[in-house]
């Protein structure tokens, strides 16, 4: 690998990076040929004072055919490697194979649902070294699901799902972003893919599908605020609740790394978000609630109890 473009962390992106390296070498050689020819001519054939015009020449059929044929050969080679790499990256799925997870783009967040009922937002977990088949969908405008180090881009087109293989070579948290312009908060439609060893992954998956514990103390006060503010119209708090999906699911939100796709998930940031989401991610579809500081605190305590 001459230059670790994309810093690949999956077999698929390794293949793409290899193709890119080959392309880069080829492009550099072609550029050097053109630049060399131009540079040489500029030095060698600059006009001398008082020089007469050279005797006209009009071209050479043989040379012209050569510089049509050679590039034709070059692009044929590139095409062969293109088709081979496409077949590897987009390896066919079994007929009728159900997806291992469904990822849905919303303005401006990502929803992920697993077959066992687990639902999460902006943080997608996968096992290390086992590829998952992800179906990419959208409920509103076109988005594009992109984790540069792990997988190709796939447009999330409403009414037209696409499939990708999502895989990681090693444990880690990999940044992802929406890559198709989708409106006001396109910039912060970011997410993380967390790859973890198989055992941890299945534990996580089981846990995410469980119902939350009954809140106590300050958290119980928070449930009252949650009802009063009608938060539940948009946000689910457990995997069992599949009706409220306008906003990100809050099920087990306390286990997530990030808030709103960008902020570290700390009490301070959570309280900031609850008090004024518009000041953090202006234009997002959650209006600033009108809460007292005590209300913010209670709601924060409640959400932090959702582990």
């Amino acid at each position: 690998m001459i230059w670790d473009a994309f810093r690949p962390q999956s077999p698929q992106v390794h293949a793409i990076a290899g193709l890119f390296d080959g392309f880069l070498i080829l492009a550099a050689v072609i550029f050097l040929i053109v630049a060399g020819l131009v540079g040489f001519s500029l030095v060698r054939y600059r006009a001398r004072a008082g020089a007469a015009d050279p005797r006209p020449t009009f071209g050479s059929r043989r040379i012209e055919i050569a510089w049509t044929a050679v590039p034709l050969l070059v692009v044929t080679v590139i095409f062969v490697f293109t088709v081979r790499t496409m077949a590897f990256v987009d390896a066919p799925r079994e007929p009728g194979q159900p997806p291992d997870l469904v990822i849905t783009g919303h303005q401006w967040w990502w929803e992920a649902r697993y077959p066992n009922g687990a639902a999460t937002a902006n943080e997608i977990h996968i096992p290390v070294s086992r590829r998952l088949l992800a179906r990419i969908e959208s409920v509103d405008v076109i988005h594009d699901f992109w984790t540069p180090q792990l997988a190709r881009k796939m447009d999330a087109v409403p009414g037209r799902p696409g499939y990708i293989w999502l895989e990681a070579d090693a444990p880690g948290a990999f940044a992802g972003a929406c890559a198709e312009f989708c409106g006001k908060q396109h910039a912060w439609m970011r997410f993380q893919v967390v790859a973890e060893p198989e055992a941890e992954f299945s534990a996580w998956l089981r846990h995410q599908a469980e119902l939350p514990a009954e809140p106590t103390g300050a958290a119980a006060e928070g449930t009252r605020v949650f009802r009063e503010q009608k938060c539940g119209d948009c946000h689910a708090v457990s995997a069992a609740d599949v009706r409220a999906a306008k906003g990100p699911s809050l099920a087990h939100i306390a286990t997530r790394n990030l808030l709103g796709g960008e902020l570290p998930n700390t009490s301070v940031n959570l309280a900031r978000w609850i008090a004024s989401p518009q000041s953090i991610k202006p234009g997002n579809l959650m209006p600033d609630p009108n809460l007292t500081p005590a209300g913010v605190q209670a709601l924060t305590a409640y959400l932090e109890s959702l582990r």
Binding site: F6, V13, A15, I16, L19, F20, F23, I78, F81, T82, T85, M86, V89, D144, W146, P148, R152, K153, A179, E180, F181
Partner: peptide
């Protein structure tokens, strides 16, 4: 035009 590279670099 090299499709897999496009899949990484488009947009």
């Amino acid at each position: 035009a090299t499709v897999p590279i496009d899949w990484e670099l488009t947009d």
